[in-house]
């Protein structure tokens, strides 16, 4: 009898501990998000979106340049990164399906997903900043695109693989060439999954700071010229949070709040699409 009780107590203790662990995970989430919300919401105002930065000591001012810059860099990164990723994933799942090369590239992409983003920043600095002689928005966009490609590529590959082979065979039987089958049948079948991958990859790069530090850098004025340094929210947050002025800190919190909400919404949207398309998982 005693042994049974001991086992039960042991089980109870261990399970309580792991419940606590799960609660602590929730605790940090609530703590961090709550903190960002409390600090950020007080600093939110319309001027933040409509005005350019005012220098320290002058009241008001906003981060219009950073919002627009961030959108522009992310957009360009998406335009470069998504086609590469989707097409690459197509190769792995279709033309090279089951071949060694597909396997190798797939593994390399998985590794690439977690490679330190600051290393990508230094790489782009050497390739696109130093030769041109100045920081520029394109360099930032390319750095982010390099981070996006493996994410999109892997999800695309996975999603295309999920499309049943019989579907393709049915199309082949009608005499369709492979590329038509891919575009009209396979892509259609996997559209929701690919879209999720794209959303998640945007969420991933929208919050990146390290690769932008030495590429797109920062600009205190409103600029949409990608050949010039362009401001981004994340680099601005880094600069403002480290700075000595209270008004900077407040704006950094507000910017953090906006970017967090944006990324969490993308993430949730991605999850919802998956759930809606592929059922509960």
């Amino acid at each position: 009898m005693d042994i049974v009780r001991k086992r039960k107590i042991e089980s109870f203790v261990a399970l309580t501990l792991s419940t606590l662990a799960a609660m602590s995970g929730l605790f940090w989430l609530v703590f961090i998000l709550g903190d960002v919300l409390i600090h950020g919401i007080g600093a939110l105002n319309l001027g933040l979106f409509l005005e350019d930065p005012a220098p320290p000591g002058i009241e008001g001012g906003g981060l219009r340049n950073a919002f627009v810059g961030q959108l522009l860099i992310t957009l360009c990164a998406t335009i470069i990164g998504v086609p590469l990723g989707v097409l690459g994933g197509t190769f792995l799942a279709e033309y090279a399906r089951g071949r060694k090369i597909a396997r190798i590239i797939s593994i390399l992409s998985d590794i690439m997903v977690s490679v330190p983003s600051i290393v990508v920043g230094t790489f782009i600095y050497a390739v696109l900043v130093k030769p041109l002689g100045h920081f520029n928005g394109w360099a930032g966009a390319v750095a982010l695109a390099i981070i996006m490609v493996p994410v999109v590529l892997r999800t695309t590959e996975d999603m295309l693989t999920l499309v049943p082979w019989t579907l393709r065979e049915a199309a082949f039987a009608l005499g369709a060439p492979y590329y038509k089958v891919i575009i009209q049948v396979v892509y259609r079948g996997a559209a929701a999954g690919i879209l999720t991958g794209i959303l998640l990859s945007i969420a991933r790069v929208a919050g990146e700071t390290a690769p932008l530090l030495f590429t797109s850098f920062n600009n205190s004025f409103f600029s949409v010229n990608m050949n010039e340094p362009i401001s981004s929210l994340t680099v601005t947050i880094f600069q403002y949070a480290m700075g000595p002025y209270d008004s900077w800190h407040a704006q950094a919190w507000a910017a953090s709040l906006i970017i967090t909400i944006f990324i969490l919404m993308l993430t949730i949207a991605g999850r919802l699409i998956i759930r809606w398309r592929y059922g509960k998982r």
């Binding site: 961090i32 700071t209 953090s256 993430t267």
Partner: peptide, 22 residues
């Protein structure tokens, strides 16, 4: 809880840094 963990993973690292500092 699964969603919460995923969200924790999605928060950009700069937010962690700023939260850590302040």
């Amino acid at each position: 809880i699964g969603v919460a963990i995923e969200l924790l993973a999605a928060i950009p690292s700069i937010i962690y840094g700023m939260w850590g500092l302040f």
